[in-house]
Design a protein around this nucleic acid. Structure first.
Lengths: 224, 224
DNA sequence: AGTATTTTTAAGATTTATTTAAGGTAGTCA
DNA sequence: TGACTACCTTAAATAAATCTTAAAAATACT
């Protein structure tokens, strides 16, 4: 989950970025509307925190511009009390939520979670490959009438394999995606989980398997 | 579809009206209870958004009054966190739904659509799943000939489970819906209430249960 | 005000997930 | 072949999430 903060008070912007990072998000901060617009257009952000009062191009213009460009990344407007009337315009222009300053970090985090959840609602529940189907909702892996519950790490790994079947995923890639970039996990952690997954795949009786590509990584394939 | 907003914060009231118009509804706003009552009595509205705290005549009195007059226009109560306890009374008095402030516009629109779908009729009193039945009026949970009274939070939780059976509801979702978006409650609060509910489900002898989906949330299921 | 009820807090018990570690297997290459 | 390396498997140790309970605090009721 990657967030963009557009806020001209640099101290506040950086503080927010810091808080968000501590809460497991990726966060970038820019300090004016034009930079914000450029960053948004990269399309890598999942959520934008947008101050209304900004030098150069104000927040509402940014919002209107991106919506006109059919960019529907969720936006939470940040506004001082005196700008309350702007909220009307903000909501018109297509913001998803607003947060009057000053706000508590708890509240901000709750709103972010709420928005994040909403985004997920529109996505498919299940990921499929051959006879396998993984439910994102229940974290259950199914093959025909058999199904088995996966733990969090097993689930994240399986998700990567299903999204990238037939492709060799390096151990480093898998480790960084599942354990995090700065994790202290070593290859053995991953190997243990590959072993767990193989056992479960076996029990399900699937025709797929996780193949070892020695020196490179693993890939999800069809047997034989 | 014509909506009436009764809300004393004029900025918010107007903002809401604006949003609703943007979304294809007709919307009027009034800023106190007595005006609201007068507008309702015209009978032209399909849905009323009613703030609880109002100058002059408060929201609950308005609601009770119109229901006594056999006006069954659906009502969504808007309430600040501090007025949360009024929700019980609101449900008793015949509100169809309630929305704790602050709420997101998406959520409001979703609720309106839900009510609109239900049609003009005064909403169903009970929510059912398998052998369970929850009465919105008395907040009693029934299973066959046994029934048990739920507290407000138990009720709200159970309502969510009944409306979304078989689906895993994340802890964050449950917390934000029941304790509010900006709640300071932690997971343990929820866990305690899940425990309470499980005890009551047990005492009722239902064949349903609340299943833990570790790392994700809870879901209402049939046993075994 | 006093009692009952609901909600929060806190701590210990329990269950489950994750890491660690050690010994085994199997490719690779001189 | 034999030494080396990458990889596999398993069990035990550790850590984390969740459950349960009781008591304290807040709130509603009479």
């Amino acid at each position: 989950m990657r967030l963009l903060i557009i806020e001209d008070e640099t101290a506040l912007a950086d503080a927010l970025a810091e808080i968000l990072k501590q809460n497991g998000y990726l966060a970038d901060a820019v300090y004016n509307g034009l930079d914000g617009l450029a960053y948004i257009r990269t399309g890598v952000y999942d959520l934008i925190l947008l101050d209304i009062m900004l030098p150069g191009m104000d927040g509402l213009s940014v919002l209107k511009t991106i919506r006109r460009e059919r960019i529907f990344t969720p936006v939470i407007l940040l506004s001082a009390k005196s700008e309350l009337s702007d909220i009307v315009n903000g909501l018109d222009a297509g913001s998803d939520d607003y947060l009057p300053k000053p706000f508590s970090t708890t509240e901000l985090l709750a709103r972010i979670r709420a928005i994040a959840r909403r985004g997920q609602q529109y996505s498919e529940d299940s990921l499929d490959f051959e006879d396998l189907s993984l439910s994102k909702n229940t974290m259950e892996l199914r093959c025909g009438k058999n199904s088995i519950k996966l733990g969090l790490k097993e689930f994240q790994l399986m998700e990567l394999f299903l999204r990238n079947s037939h492709q060799v995923l390096s151990k480093d890639l898998l480790l960084s995606k599942v354990w995090g970039l700065d994790a202290e996990a070593d290859y053995n952690n991953l190997e243990v989980y590959i072993s767990f997954l193989r056992q479960k795949l076996n029990n399900l009786g699937t025709k797929t398997c996780i193949r070892t590509n020695r020196g490179v990584g693993y890939s999800l394939e069809v047997n034989e």
